[in-house]
Design a protein around this nucleic acid. Structure first.
Lengths: 354, 354
DNA sequence: AAAACATCAGAGAACGTTTTCCCTATTTTT
DNA sequence: AAAAATAGGGAAAACGTTCTCTGATGTTTT
């Protein structure tokens, strides 16, 4: 009784008898028989190759009549191209990734490619498992937002298919990649806060990603250039732990900075939660800036000042690069660095930027 | 030059020569040769069937040595079970669906099932295309959040695989389904607002989904029971259009209600946007209640009062039902109705609920 | 000790396509 | 008008597995 937790379970329409209108499995041979042609001809018609029009029509009619649907497994086995790409993201709850995924999917389908979508939850083991799956699926290529371990592993790995890294890629990565200019964008946030008069600016960055690393570098560089000491706070991915770390930072009045640079929107939500429980008002008690832009950010904390990533462009570029790589396998690896857009709203506090 | 828009493109590591350490395509036969056994035996070892231990070890060693990876296309073709389920959602940007997807994926993988993830963007044509794809993939089953047209179509359709409807299902649907008790939950929101003293409560519901329909019914019933006239506002899915409709409602001071019941979180964001541009403060000028709970909702409009859906339970139940249906194909169809949880925060305005 | 039975490895068919090869019919060239 | 070239359809192989069937090797029963 697996539905014990259900509010109620209705049972309906008793006899769903399977009267099979069509023979259970219609194959290309059945179509061929009905159309009185050879299987090869049916295949040719379906592939859109030149076939005598009268035969073609006979085949098409037979397809309609029999309700034939090609078997993709068989097709892929024989033709040896799967027309499938893998998309492996690190956190499906992060709207940045869902936005990129949506674009990737749409563009891939425009190119007649199916996409296998996977979510690793920042878990290197799951990631490895999925990469193996990609191999077993004999995918055409993979678009991957790797964990840090994953990024390392890929550097040493010679895979059977091209890989395009998104969002996270070491500068010396051995495959194509499309990333944000994380350093510059993190620096932009620091400069923004500095101009607003903040001098105690802490940086919260993920411990497990090269993206976090890069943003941290940009933060540190900018802080140095501003001539103020920085405090880098490594924040784990898991929500509970993240909130503990943040609470430790903000709960101690002596330690508490006046402003924060936060590495992404899920981390930002942990910050908001902690600030709320501590009774901190934003931006009065704590100024906030972050990466990623989402609709609700307009309405929180007087409008959050953030770096917006060009999500469509990231997705589009990734697919384009992958496709291009298929044609030019031995070409040099490329690294595309995209600029983000800084959106100034109210969460920086302390008067307006010049 | 498809990267004209790039901030910069680095070209790296020139000669990625493909020195194939292993023969390009290692098959089960190659493994068999190396292990000096028959292909059948290799297959048996890989399937975990009883094989002489010494042979088994030889095979395992040969697998390691050759770097063999099974070809899933071939396996699926021959064995005639794909161990794959389809998951078709209507809007990947809606966090409700991403949350459900995450659960479905995790549970499916626990059961050794792969999932093909698809996003229809509320487009019936895309949905139909994906359903056809599922057929061509010969999936084991499908979990589907249908558009309204899709729900209608499925009622007449006799598909080759079981389908479990989630989130949206007509009460008379011809397949298994797991849904929220939309009527009761919508009524709950109305009652909440009524108790707070609101008398002019409008309901905003999607035009294209049976979920919207059901929530609307609950809203109307509850309004009638409270003895106050309701105003139902159909809101299209597309963002621009949605905002126009909402602006028309809230912009006209005479027409403007004092409180709103909103059907989901993406619609809610449109409401927030419009309220913001109109300079309406929440809950002072407009009380707000909605479906779906997300972390940021704590921090907007004094805390949004919402109906939280049991997302994990929905995903888990859907997979369980699908699996169960495979064992009991001719069983009656089941409809699981889950209760949501009402979370009262501040956005209802006008004093506290009794 | 012989007969019946169980166990398990190998040979080869099968899964549903695409593709190669060959052959015929037609068109083009000389 | 004959020869060469081209086009397009059919037969059969091939893709990499799993599965059925058969036979051999032990193991138990009488």
């Amino acid at each position: 009784m697996p539905w014990a937790y259900a509010l109620c379970v209705y049972a309906l329409s008793c006899s769903m008898w399977r009267e099979n209108v069509f023979p259970m499995n219609v194959g290309i041979k059945d179509v061929a028989r009905v159309a009185a042609v050879s299987p090869a001809t049916v295949s040719r018609v379906l592939a859109g190759r030149t076939v005598d029009p009268v035969m073609r029509d006979r085949v098409l009619e037979a397809v309609r009549e029999t309700g034939y649907r090609p078997n993709l497994a068989a097709r892929r086995l024989r033709s040896r191209h799967t027309k499938t790409i893998g998309l492996i993201v690190a956190d499906i709850r992060n709207p940045f990734f869902t936005a990129v995924s949506r674009t990737v999917e749409a563009i891939a389908y425009d190119h007649g490619l199916r996409v296998i979508f996977c979510n690793t939850d920042e878990d290197a083991a799951k990631e490895a498992m999925y990469m193996q799956l990609m191999q077993e699926e004999r995918v055409t290529g993979v678009i991957l937002a790797p964990t840090r371990e994953g990024a390392d592993r890929i550097a040493h790995l010679e895979s059977d298919f091209p890989i395009v890294l998104i969002d996270r890629a070491a500068p010396n990565a051995s495959c194509d990649s499309v990333v944000l200019d994380n350093e510059a964008m993190a620096a932009r946030l620091v400069v923004h806060l500095h101009r607003l008069g903040h001098r105690r600016i802490a940086g919260l960055f993920g411990t497990d990603t090269v993206t976090g690393r890069e943003r941290c570098d940009g933060y540190e560089r900018a802080m140095a250039e501003c001539g103020i000491p920085g405090e880098v706070v490594p924040v784990p991915h898991e929500r509970e732990q993240a909130q503990r770390v943040i609470a430790a930072l903000l709960g101690d009045v002596a330690r508490r900075p006046s402003a924060l640079v936060v590495s992404n929107s899920v981390m930002l939500q942990s910050v908001l939660r902690v600030a709320d429980t501590l009774g901190l008002e934003i931006p009065r008690d704590l100024a906030l800036t972050s990466f990623d832009n989402e609709p609700w950010m307009e309405f929180v904390a007087g409008g959050l000042s953030v770096i917006e990533q060009p999500v469509e462009e990231i997705g589009r570029t990734a697919v384009t690069m992958l496709l291009d790589r298929l044609d030019h396998a031995d070409c040099v690896t490329r690294r595309v660095v995209l600029a983000g857009r800084f959106i100034a709203r109210g969460s920086g506090g302390r008067g307006a930027e010049a």
